[in-house]
Amino acid sequence: MNKQELINKYKELWNEHSPFYEPIPYTSMVELFLKELKQLDEPQPVKVPQFVADWIEVCKEHLTTSLYTAMNPNFMKENNQSFDLILWIKKTSNQDLFARAWLDGYEVEKEKRYLVKIKGNIKENTLVYGELLERYFFTKGFTLGNAIYHHTHKELEEADFGWVFDCEGVEVQEVE
């Protein structure tokens, strides 16, 4: 809740012509107001990608306690960080997000996951990653032990399956 929302809420509660008006004892109203007012000072964690969360943790635990240094692309390069992280931090809006995550805490964004199937009447049509085999392959729709059926876009790209997103013969479904 932001400051203006809190002000508007209490204008409604204290206005006897408002449909939300309730004759609440003065002391109860003050207690409720003070409780909600305290929440205004509590910063909310921001959402960042996993690679950003990983970098923040590495910096704080092993490399630097300086926000300025952690955001420096040259420092990232010196510490073998991914090109994705460097590109991400160069965006102005992401710099603000990174600083807030560093100072106030963060939650990791859940990456979208996809189920990939070949269209048509094909028995072995579902793309899976077999953890025991350490490779991707197409199989029937039943569940295999130690197989991953839902993949991130990045995982598919890195495994040279990025083409599935543009192929008319393949169905790509976003899953939870």
Rank of each mutant, 00 (worst) to 15 (best):
Q44K: 15
F20I: 05
G141Q: 11
D96C: 04
F165S: 05
I148W: 01
Y136Q: 04
K35P: 03
D166I: 02
E158T: 06
I122M: 01
Q39A: 13
K123Q: 13
D104G: 01
K123C: 02
Q4N: 10
E176I: 11
W163K: 02
V170Y: 00
K35S: 15
A99W: 01
D104R: 00
N72E: 10
P45W: 05
P73W: 11
P49V: 09
V30W: 02
E31S: 11
P49N: 04
E5L: 08
W88E: 07
E109S: 12
A70W: 06
L115S: 11
N15I: 11
G141V: 13
T152C: 05
T65W: 01
T126L: 03
Y21E: 11
E42D: 10
N94I: 10
R113Y: 00
L133G: 07
Q173P: 00
A159D: 08
K47T: 12
E109T: 06
F83G: 02
M29G: 14
T27L: 08
F75Q: 03
S82H: 01
F20Y: 13
L127C: 05
L67D: 02
F138K: 00
I89H: 04
N121M: 06
T139N: 09
A147G: 12
T65V: 07
I56L: 06
T27D: 11
S82D: 09
E134H: 07
S28W: 02
L13M: 12
Y21D: 08
L115E: 12
A70H: 09
N2D: 15
F33N: 04
L40N: 08
H153I: 00
E12Q: 13
N146G: 06
K119G: 04
F75I: 05
F137A: 04
E131Y: 07
F98I: 02
E134Q: 12
N146A: 14
N15F: 14
F142A: 06
F161K: 01
D160T: 06
Y114N: 05
L13D: 03
R113L: 12
L85G: 05
F83Y: 12
W88L: 07
E174A: 05
A99H: 03
K110H: 07
E155K: 09
W88H: 10
H151Y: 03
F33H: 14
E109K: 15
Y26W: 12
T65N: 14
V30Q: 07
Q44H: 07
D104N: 15
V52D: 09
L133D: 11
L144M: 07
Y21A: 08
L6I: 02
F142K: 10
K91A: 11
